[in-house]
């Protein structure tokens, strides 16, 4: 009898081993409870597995560029939250450099405007910019569609995603949006902390840093998205002749030198920093805000203290604590998610 139960147990394990692995059903984009409602209307472009797979293939495909050398992923790399590590600005086609730091691609569903100057209002339209930019892909959307239409694999994938083989501008762009919609980062230690989940034990230093952050940084880096989506001049430069920022879109003089307030999620993994990419470390970033702010007519009023000094007063200890807090925004699960990597 003793042996029988042993063999039964063994049989049970044997059965389990011979069963096929259970396929995880496709899950659409995660909508974290600590985030506000998304800005992107998912009902206009529901995310499906086939649409996501198609968008991912396009994202990693170099045929998007004129000479088939540059893909989206060349400047938006998964392990750095789809930013471009170690590149102040990125090199595109013919080794030409762009003017601005390649931004992270994460939590796009919650963005209202895109690019450093907010020149594009809708996620669907964002890829057209890189495709047409003479220093990025230097191609035309018409040529991209033409190339996709020549490709049997794409035809099949468009059919799987949208019902027919027809390859239109809208389908092409919506599939890329479906891929980007899935890039949700909301599982950092900070997220676990605010949602009261396991893995949310923050160090005393990080908690002190959080309090300092709320007092000194959170007027611009608001909500759990860590941005108020506004355009501000943060005093990085005082000469904007090279890049006028938001002004280039709005043509309003009060917008000269203003750039989008970026999210701080995965900030540890997205060096270098700022629109110009000229700050390499978080220490340099906080030094900038503490003592490096440059004056110009459009400098953000929050960076002018009542006594006339510029910037945000921070001691060395405070800076270290804030950096400790910022590192709790690193979402290892997102950075290493095999669904998103090439």
């Amino acid at each position: 009898m003793k042996y029988l139960s042993f063999f039964l147990l063994l049989a049970l394990f044997a059965c389990r081993d011979t069963q096929p692995p259970v396929e995880e059903p496709f899950q659409g984009p995660e909508l974290p409870t600590n985030f506000p409602a998304p800005s992107y209307d998912l009902t206009l472009n529901p995310v499906t597995e086939a649409g996501f797979n198609l968008g991912k293939k396009i994202f990693y495909d170099r045929i998007l560029s004129r000479d088939s050398t540059i893909s989206c992923a060349d400047c938006h790399i998964s392990y750095s939250a789809f930013s471009h590590p170690d590149h102040p600005t990125s090199h595109g086609i013919d080794n030409l450099f762009g003017r601005r730091n390649a931004q992270a691609v994460q939590n796009m569903l919650w963005e209202k405007e895109f690019l450093w100057d907010g020149g594009v209002p809708n996620l669907d339209l964002v890829p057209l910019n890189a495709i047409q930019s003479p220093v990025e892909m230097d191609n035309t959307p018409a040529e991209v569609l033409h190339r996709l239409k020549q490709n049997a694999e794409y035809k099949a994938m468009f059919k799987a995603a949208f019902g027919t083989e027809e390859i239109t501008t809208a389908r092409f762009l919506q599939s890329l949006s479906q891929f980007m919609a899935m890039l949700v980062s909301a599982n950092s230690p900070y997220d676990h902390y605010v949602r009261g989940e396991s893995g949310g034990d923050l160090s005393a230093e990080a908690l002190e840093g959080m309090a300092l952050f709320k007092a000194k940084c959170a007027s611009c880096h608001t909500t759990d998205l860590f941005t108020d989506h506004s355009f501000r001049n943060n005093g990085l430069l005082d000469d904007f002749s090279f890049d006028k920022g938001r002004y280039e879109v709005s043509q309003l003089p009060e917008d000269i030198g203003k750039f989008r307030v970026p999210s701080l999620r995965n900030i540890e993994a997205t060096s270098p920093y700022m629109h110009h990419g000229n700050l390499k470390t978080l220490e340099e970033v906080l030094d900038h805000y503490a003592s490096g702010v440059k004056d110009s007519p459009t400098l953000d009023p929050l960076l002018r203290q009542p006594d006339g000094t510029l910037g945000i007063p921070l001691t060395a200890t405070e800076k270290a604590r804030i950096i400790s807090f910022l590192k709790t925004l690193t979402d290892e699960k997102f950075l290493r998610d095999a669904r998103f990597a090439e």
């Binding site: 594009v120 501008t169 809208a170 879109v249």
Partner: peptide
């Protein structure tokens, strides 16, 4: 308008080719 409503002469890849600013949508 949504990209699905940009057809014909308003399609950035076809009808509106050359008449669409992608950097300042």
């Amino acid at each position: 308008s949504p990209v699905t409503e940009r057809l014909g002469v308003l399609d950035p890849a076809t009808g509106a080719s050359g008449h669409y600013w992608s950097w300042n949508a």
